[in-house]
Structure formats: structure tokens, C-alpha cells
């Protein structure tokens, strides 16, 4: 098997590693935390904080 054939397999392999890492961590995170916490981000935080400071 030539160097570049090897590289093709290496690329597939690494892709699988990165892909699996993401998917596993994603599923784990979804299972560990409450949906309310995960989706609690709200827009306009900075502005509200600056207002708070002035007020």
C-alpha cells in the first residue's frame, strides 16, 4: 500500500474520531443537563448589564 493510500485511510479514521467525539459529548451533555438550563441563553445580555450599571 502506498503512502497516499495510507493517508486516505488515516483521513477516514481521524474523521471518525472527531465525529464520534462530537456525537458522544453531545448526547452525554443532553443527558446530563436540564433542557431549561441548556436553552436559557437570552439575547441582549450586555445591554441589560450596562443599563444595570447606570441604574
Amino acid at each position: 500500500m502506498s503512502f497516499w493510500n495510507l493517508m486516505e485511510y488515516a483521513a477516514w479514521g481521524l474523521s471518525a474520531v472527531f465525529g464520534l467525539y462530537i456525537v458522544i459529548d453531545w448526547l452525554k451533555t443532553d443527558a446530563t443537563y436540564d433542557e431549561e438550563v441548556l436553552t436559557s441563553s437570552r439575547e441582549g445580555e450586555l445591554e441589560a448589564m450596562v443599563e444595570e450599571r447606570h441604574g
Partner: peptide, 18 residues
Amino acid sequence: GELNQKPFIVLSILFLAW
């Protein structure tokens, strides 16, 4: 030979997504 570009395309997207 003709290099298979697919694994490299997939790898660049998955690495950066990671």
C-alpha cells in the same frame, strides 16, 4: 493513481467542527 478526495473533504469539515 487518482487520489480519493472524499476522506480529506470529510476530515477538514469534521476537524473544524470539532
